[in-house]
């Protein structure tokens, strides 16, 4: 969210889990919580990237008057007098189900097992399709390559359950400059194993987007 949302450059006072907090102009609920060291779990959020909102682990319940709404804290700025709850029943319901599904979706990831265990989720009722899978399609690697590195060497192909991280025609992409940013932002380390499917022939590097 841009700072134009809080035009008067005023801090916004609201509460998180009953604790009064103040958000500086432009802060999201998540940024405010982090400032006050209130823990909200995240997977797709990265401070260097635009919030994307794909993992939905950072959801919180925001109540204003009688109305309550579950929303991702990484994308939403607070408003005055908002009451935010980081572990209400509705929030935990979303979080536990997402984690249980991730245990089946990324069964090889130690990070996800650890996170799930913290919420009491240790087994999954869902079918495991690939026991080696670690990628949760959070989009951090795609975003860092687009927004920060600026070479757009990798992308998502297909959609829905078939969505997969890949390069065009699934051949190594010579646009890749081998900077390794995608590997460093990956929350589960999934990209480390598949870097060679993205990175093209180093000897064929041209000036396009590469170390000007």
């Amino acid at each position: 969210m841009s700072s134009s949302e809080n035009p008067q450059n005023q801090v916004i006072s609201f509460t998180i889990d009953g604790q009064p907090v103040q958000a500086r102009p432009g802060w999201t609920i998540l940024e405010t919580a982090r400032h006050y060291r209130i823990h909200i779990p995240t997977l797709c959020f990265h401070p260097a990237l635009k919030p994307w909102g794909s993992c939905r682990l950072c959801v919180v319940e925001a109540r204003y008057g009688k109305r309550g709404k579950v929303m991702p804290s990484c994308l939403n700025p607070p408003i005055e007098e908002l009451e935010v709850f980081t572990d209400s029943e509705r929030v935990l319901n979303v979080r536990r189900w997402v984690l249980e599904m991730l245990l089946a979706g990324c069964p090889a990831s130690r990070e996800i097992k650890k996170l799930a265990a913290a919420y009491g989720v240790t087994s999954t009722r869902f079918a495991v399709t690939d026991p080696e899978e670690e990628c949760l399609r959070c989009g951090r690697c795609v975003a860092v390559c687009n927004e920060v590195v600026g070479v757009q060497a990798l992308t998502f192909g297909s959609r829905g359950v078939k969505k997969v991280l890949e390069t065009p025609y699934r051949v190594p992409n010579n646009a890749c400059i081998g900077c390794g940013c995608c590997v460093s932002v990956c929350p589960t380390g999934a990209l480390q194993k598949r870097l060679d499917t993205v990175r093209g022939d180093l000897s064929r590097r041209t000036g396009h987007g590469y170390a000007h």
């Binding site: 599904m101 297909s158 829905g160």
Partner: peptide, 19 residues
């Protein structure tokens, strides 16, 4: 089939509900 697959609850949740 029609989910875009961006957010986890929809991408994995529909598959899970279908199971």
């Amino acid at each position: 089939e029609e989910s875009c697959g961006k957010c986890l609850p929809c991408r994995l949740g529909l598959k899970g509900m279908l199971e």
